[in-house]
Nucleic acid binder design. Sequence first.
DNA 1: TAAAGCTATCTTGTTTTGCAAGATAGCTTT
DNA 2: AAAGCTATCTTGCAAAACAAGATAGCTTTA
Lengths: 112, 112
Amino acid sequence: MSFRSQLLKGILEGCILSIINKEMVYGYELSQKLQHFGLHDVSEGSIYPILLRLQKDGLIKGEMRASSTGPKRKYYELTNLGEKALLEIQEEWKNLQKPVDRLLNRSVDDER
Amino acid sequence: MSFRSQLLKGILEGCILSIINKEMVYGYELSQKLQHFGLHDVSEGSIYPILLRLQKDGLIKGEMRASSTGPKRKYYELTNLGEKALLEIQEEWKNLQKPVDRLLNRSVDDER
DNA sequence: TAAAGCTATCTTGTTTTGCAAGATAGCTTT
DNA sequence: AAAGCTATCTTGCAAAACAAGATAGCTTTA
């Protein structure tokens, strides 16, 4: 039995939108960037389905491009809708982070 | 269509353990405390199943007590196992919060 | 005393999220 | 031609959370 809770749930989508917002990226690259940012253990079985869903919902759009060193890559960029969604997620994250932090990191003599 | 992502997923369990760790509480009270801490929109359809699961997993234990003003209440407290689990979740939260924050709140000229 | 309202717990069914595992295929190196 | 890397996508599953509602005790009000 493991106590490992699934803390990532729900925010991965926002992190992906945020990375795509900076620059066009393709899925494989995305998984490396997430890793670089400290989000380890995010498998491609998570990333690709999210990308497809975001595309289906119109938040990102993809475009195949040839690579000089391997197979074709599908580069994604945010749509206007996606930018709006990202702003909302950033706002929600701020509102969530504070209370959770108070709850999980407070010392014994904090507010009850 | 709504962009509302489910940011809470995964950390609610930790927040509940954290509150119970402070003092014995019952489910109904818990939902009010979560609200007070800024975690709105957490329904009892979320809270009670989590309490039952935590109890089944041996992280908390419950005890019925009469109330002077209403129906009986089931007060919960952490077990040793539960205290250990809470420490792990607090650690995970710290490790998760930083990268997500960098991703979601960074300004345009931050690290790429 | 009967009805309404509040407190309190729990269940059922559904949706969303994420992951493990693996299928597919192009390109490069050996 | 075989092996290995890059790259995308699919299938099937489990966990998490919620909406909605069932149940029931207690208190207040009419």
